[in-house]
């Protein structure tokens, strides 16, 4: 089982690095586009950043459908478990 706290903190850190938003302003409820101002092209960077961070390869279509940080944590944890 993935350590969900570890996944959460790393997801937030990657999100912060790529979107330039301080970590303490990112919550599980934060929506990438509406709340964190991610541009469409940054969604692609986020996927790459998460894949590099967790050494996983996600389904691109499904990954790009993830809308908020909490869902990203759950989605990534699934791959980490694999």
């Amino acid at each position: 089982m993935a350590d969900m706290q570890d996944v959460e903190s790393r997801v937030k850190q990657v999100t912060s690095d790529i979107l330039g938003v301080p970590v303490d302003q990112i919550s599980s409820e934060s929506r990438f586009v509406q709340d964190l101002n991610a541009e469409s092209i940054q969604s692609i960077e986020l996927v790459a950043g998460f894949e590099a961070e967790f050494d996983i390869e996600m389904d691109e279509d499904e990954a790009l459908e993830v809308k908020n940080v909490g869902d990203a944590i759950t989605f990534i944890a699934k791959y980490v478990d694999e």
Partner: peptide, 16 residues
Amino acid sequence: CWMINDRPTRGLGFKN
């Protein structure tokens, strides 16, 4: 590869 901000990514994926 999609190069975005000087970094390689998989872009929108192979199907796209």
